[in-house]
Nucleic acid binder design. Structure first.
Lengths: 225, 225
DNA sequence: CGTTACGTTGACTCCCGTCAAGATCCGTGG
DNA sequence: CCACGGATCTTGACGGGAGTCAACGTAACG
């Protein structure tokens, strides 16, 4: 059914997909790559509002204009649906609407989690949050346990980290150095991160109780990840 | 249809409705009053994540636990639906699901707007945003134009303002005083706010271009409100 | 009255933003 | 292979904005 109205588009890293206020003729689903949503104030201050990964959805039924910039981070393939037929299909196929509902509720949850981070966390906590988030995502992607030592490639630049966390690039860099000096992370070539002890890093996020006598495995299991 | 599975509950101002992690046996719609969603870090830092007004919805289909605290601000009446029958009804009645989808997309939009505020705006800009937001809401509620002088009762305390904006109560207070001294707002009894010139206040939000020669009406109409 | 919650103001500190200079990495071309 | 230039990242010095701690007003209510 959806087959009939879909087509594919690809974008290179750094390429804009659409701008705030644009009228979008299609809705889309991310097939490969990653996409960032952001918004910029007139004076240039920029805040990333969301990070879309494969299976995430762009656009909303019933409204033509997007209210943020959309940009490809890595090479991206979108599966696009023309608006009119897609909206008609939602009417006829409740299952799709229900799927979209669950997805948008998930995004809402993520956005609210991020509000807590942006509004109340310190720079060190923000960086720790982001790093352990990515570490856990990589671990689950590669089916590894989140217990021991692990490495990954940082998918975004320092600048993008700043935009995501509501920090300047200099503060990001300084906090990375600080975490490195404290032995919580290791950095090779500025993009390759190694985390010797994820539990220790997560203790810096502010999300967990400062427990004096709690072993590491325990601290990982008693809270949701 | 919904009639058969619904019942009402009321809560007094300040009364908790549920706590983070609670299992909720019902979903609900706000009938009267206002409700705040918030989350607290282990060390006590608190961030408001959402403000629900009449017609807004609490809870999500397919998940039992809430992931934030829910609290009544003013006297609140909820229309509650038992979970099981409600979820069954969504299956059978696509229209309800579509309605929920639109509502959750609206909430997502608000949450992202707030991320911009929390991550990048100064204390003065945050306060200005909140005040002009409330002013516009009151104006549209009472069907007044948003051009001239207008007054309203601040529905929340300084503390709640701080939780909403990611600020301390002292900073909130100081910025209110500063805006008052600059003639942008007038304060009577700490809760009654008068805005002599909404456009002037909105110029402090950071959302608009610092335009040297732009008349007020124009500045109000050229951007979305 | 006194008590308690709420709000304001002041003094001080410190985290983070700003400005500026280096350092490192990387692709291109001589 | 090395030189050059540009982007990216790091580091330092400095200042300001917002948090912290504390005292003082003010309003509501018994």
């Amino acid at each position: 059914m959806l087959e009939e109205i879909k087509y594919y588009r690809t974008y290179d890293p750094g390429q804009p997909i659409m701008f705030e206020g644009d009228e979008m003729q299609f809705l889309a689903s991310v097939v490969t790559g990653s996409v960032k949503l952001s918004r910029t104030l007139p004076d240039g201050r920029k805040q990333m509002l969301g990070l879309l990964l494969p299976s995430d959805f762009i656009g909303r039924p019933g409204r033509k204009n997007v209210d943020y910039d959309v940009e490809a981070i890595q090479k991206v393939t979108l599966c696009c649906f023309r608006r009119k037929p897609f909206e008609a299909m939602i009417e006829k196929t409740p299952h799709i609407g229900q799927r979209l509902l669950v997805m948008s509720l998930d995004e809402l949850e993520v956005a609210r989690e991020w509000m807590m981070l942006l509004g109340r966390k310190t720079a060190r906590e923000k960086i720790s949050c982001l790093l352990s988030l990515i570490a856990r995502r990589y671990a689950s992607l590669h089916l590894k346990s989140i217990g021991g030592r692990q490495s990954f490639e940082m998918p975004i630049s320092r600048e993008a980290m700043g935009e995501y966390l509501g920090l300047t690039i200099e503060t990001v860099s300084r906090q990375m150095t600080s975490l490195r000096k404290d032995g919580l992370i290791e950095i090779a070539g500025s993009r390759t991160i190694t985390i010797p002890d994820l539990a220790a890093l997560m203790a810096e996020t502010g999300d967990y109780i400062e427990a004096p006598m709690m072993n590491e495995t325990h601290s990982l299991t008693q809270h949701r990840v």
